[in-house]
Every structure is written in C-alpha cells, then in structure tokens.
Amino acid sequence: MTESMTGPRTSARAGTGAAPGAATLIAVAALVALVITAWRYFTPLSGVTGTAGALLTMVGDVALLIGGIVLALLPGGGWRVLFLVLAWIGGLLTLLATVLLHGWSSAAALVVLLLALLIATFVKGPAKGTHP
C-alpha cells in the first residue's frame, strides 16, 4: 500500500491522533477520583457523608470517565475537539468541587487527569496510516 492509496492527510487528522495513552490515563484518573469520592459519600464521619456536593462531584467524575473513554476512541476531528473542551471545563470544575470537599486524595487524581488532558490536547501522536 502506498501513501497515495491511503489518501492525503487531512488537517483534521493531523495533530489530533495524539497519545491514546493520555486519554486512557484521563479515564483511569477519573475512575480513581470517583471511587474515593464515592467512599467518602457513603462512609460515616467522612465529612461529606450523604451530601449533595459529594454527589455532584461524583457526577463530574463519571462524566470525566466517559469523556476519557470517548477520547481514547475518537481518532480526531471536530468531535474530539469538542470533547477535549468539555473535558477541560468538567475537569477544572470537578477539581474545584473536590477541593471544596477537602478531598485531597481525589484532588490529586484529578490533577493527574488534567496533566493527561494537557498531553491529550497538545502533544501530537503519530498520524494514522503512516509507516516508519
């Protein structure tokens, strides 16, 4: 198969096929944050047991988890850009909520998530269809 048979690279594809590992890390970090916040929500005397704030934060963690999975599957294009933007908004808001809950361990997980999101946003991985 030659390069001509694969068709020209598109601008949408270029620079967005980045580090699928980063997206996976986003999902894993979100899952870790979710588990910790859920533990605090259900455990007596955690400080946030049964609170609406913890529940809302868990919703944010779930959204980030889904976002990470989607980003791992999306090769590029406008949808990926949209999900990246949503992940940034969701990630920052969920981190803020987690800090306000004094959830330091899950906040650390979310910091890792945001670093992974940084990589997913700006680091270009190998373009699809190219061969060394």
Partner: peptide
Amino acid sequence: VQKWGFYM
C-alpha cells in the same frame, strides 16, 4: 462552614 458538603 459547610454547605451541601462544600467547605467554605
């Protein structure tokens, strides 16, 4: 102070 679990 806490509201909805969020510490101020």
